[in-house]
Each structure stands twice: as C-alpha cells, then as structure tokens.
Design a protein around this nucleic acid. Structure first.
Lengths: 187, 187
DNA sequence: AGGTGCATGTAACAGGTTACATGATTAA
DNA sequence: TTAATCATGTAACCTGTTACATGCACCT
C-alpha cells in the first residue's frame, strides 16, 4: 500500500485552477455553475470569467486533476466535472501550504483620495463616492447572508469578514466626511 | 479667451497613466522616483512596475499630457517629466469624475478560508496566516506614518484608512482564532 | 574593490476581461 | 412569443509581472 509522501513535488496550480478545484469540491460541477456561484459569493475577494474557466477546465482535465463527463439536460449540452484523487490531493496541498497568502488590491477610490491634493475641493466627493460603493457592496453581502448561514463554515466566515470590513470602511468614510466638512466651515 | 467646456470629450487614461499623472503632480518626476515612491506608499492599494511605467511615460508624452527633458545627474542619464496643461486637465477630469471608483481584490487567504471545509483541520492555520500577513503589512504602514503625517492630506488619509482596515482585520482574525479553538475543545 | 542606490529600458510571459457566437429550455 | 436562464466556448485585447541587460555614482 503506497504511503503518501509529504515531500511530494508540489502540483502547480494557476489561480483560476485553485478556484475551480475548490468549487468542484464545494459541489459546483459545471463551468456555468462555477461562474454563477463565484459571482454571487466569492466575487467580493476573487473574480473569475468564462474566458478563464472553460479553458482551465480543459487543462485541469488534461493534467488528470478533474474528470468530466457529458450529462446533457434535455437537448442542452452540459459537462459535469468531479475531482480525481490527484485533484483532491492538489486542493488539500494548496489549502495546507504555509506560504503567505497573496493579496492584491486595486482601489481606484483610494488612488483618487491619495492624489486629491491636486483637486482638494473634490476631496469630500471622492470619499462620498467610496462610501456609496461600499454601501452598495454591503447591501449585496447582506442579501446573501441568510443563504450562507446555512452553508459551510468557510464561506460563512468569509462573508462575515467581508461584511465587517465593509461596515468599518463606511464608518471611516462617514467620520472623514464630517471632518472634511468641519474643516471647510472653519475657513 | 477660451472658456473650458465641461462637456469636453473625456481623455481616456489607462490605470497606470492615472498613477503617473498623479505622481508627477505630486512632485515625483522620474520613472525611478515614481516606482520607488509607489512601492513605499500606495503599494498597499495600488501596484506599479517598471514594465508599465516606462512605456506609459512615452505614451503619455506622445499624447501631449506630459513633457520630458533630459536632466542627467552627472554622467547618469535621467529624464525629468512635468505635466502639460492638457495633462493637468486630464488628471483633474479623472479626479472629478463621478463614476463609481473601481475596486478589485484578489485575496488568496480569503479564498482558502472560503474553501476550508475541504480541509477543516487546517482552518485555524489559514486564519493565522492571514493575520501574520496583516501584521507584517501593518508594521510597514506604521513605519511610513511619521513621514506621511507631514505630507499632503490625501496621502495621509489613505494611510490612516489602510492602518484602520488592517487593524480591524487583525482583530477579526484574533476573535475567529479564539472561536475556532473553542470549537475544537468542545469536541 | 565592492556593494548599494540611482536610472532606464525591454522581451517573454502570465493572467485576465470583453465581446461575441451559438443554441436549448423554461417561465411569463 | 418573447424574455430570461442554462450552457459552452473562443478570439482579440488589455494590463501587468518577471527577469534580464546596462551603466554611472557614491560610500565604505
């Protein structure tokens, strides 16, 4: 009986490959279902598009990490995927890896605020626009909350974190708007 | 005397183009200086690399938004840029635009947490790894704080926001770690 | 003499989005 | 019958990173 070697060479996964393996383990089994579900849930901290998903499904199958079989619904073509043993191992290897998890943020609102000394009279509007965006996002996160509280723990935790983060940002914006308004009055 | 038309067709700027215009207005005048400064300050919410900066400087000059002139320091080649009128207008037009500012986050830690039901015994380690990352980032943000408090208001505000956001995340991680540890004990 | 910082630049690659094409099924 | 939803897929494009090459200036 083969003993799993913890020194096994790491299976390299692309970012989208990780999402796909995770989503299949989660029970999302077609490309369409993965995309729809990502948009409704993980979208807040991770995006995915068809242009990445479908080619990546093929590559993962070629590498033996997933297995697809046709399962048409009526006359509508449909391919259902499942994890192979190697795929499960690759997913767990990634989840268990000790590397510092990557973090990339591109926030145009903060960028505008950073440069707002070039147009100081618009500064408060920039903060307001950030708050409006966060309020819209918060409404979306809250709308999926009742659904997620019945779901797995992991997705529930990220939702709670997202809501908390967004609420904090809104409060910060409100306080900053008050401060900026007070400064304008002083003059 | 020409009256500026508020209906003027929008000057399209690439993301990096915006950063460059903003940074030149900020007083950062060479490609090297822009890159170094971004890495020390805006890096937390916006990254830039030489591979983007130098070609973009050329494109912005071709479009007449910036003007460069050679200003070698000793025998070392050096090009110093300044905004043209059109460049200043483009920057202000962007800063004043009412569009919802874009926001893109890719957080591998949250992605792992989301999928952690596939490897529940590692969940607490995933949260710890996120906290470790945030603590490292917080240390960096705090290290530039004394310097920024003397600087322009915009950059100071984004720094404060970054620090607050990071502190909140660390507290959330601590609370979640305690909760997960308690749940394990119960069993 | 050697390391660090200043300074510019590019080629190869990676990763991702947008827009489009196609077509079946289902609910109003 | 028509709109929305389910479902797959790709080509063109955009944006960005990594790794490398080059060389001067300054400090120790």
């Amino acid at each position: 009986m083969p003993v799993p070697d913890p020194q096994l060479p790491a299976v390299e996964l692309t970012p989208t490959g990780r999402v796909i393996l995770g989503m299949i383990a989660f029970g999302k089994r077609t490309g369409y279902e993965i995309k729809t579900f990502v948009d409704r849930t993980a979208r807040y901290f991770w995006a995915a598009s068809y242009g990445q998903i479908y080619p990546e499904l093929k590559r993962l199958e070629d590498r033996g990490l997933i297995r697809g079989r046709p399962e048409p619904s009526g006359g509508r073509a449909r391919t259902v995927y499942e994890l192979t043993q190697a795929g499960t191992a690759a997913l767990e290897q990634w989840l268990g890896s000790e590397d510092t998890p990557s973090y990339e943020l591109r926030d145009e609102g903060m960028l505008k605020l950073f440069f707002s000394d070039s147009l100081p009279e618009r500064r408060i509007e920039i903060v307001r626009a950030i708050r409006a965006r966060e309020e819209r996002d918060l409404a979306h996160l809250r709308s999926i909350e009742p659904h997620a509280s019945k779901g797995p723990t992991g997705s529930y935790l990220t939702l709670q974190m997202g809501i908390g983060l967004t609420e904090w940002t809104i409060k910060w914006c409100e306080a900053t708007e008050r401060q900026l308004a007070a400064e304008t009055e002083e003059e």
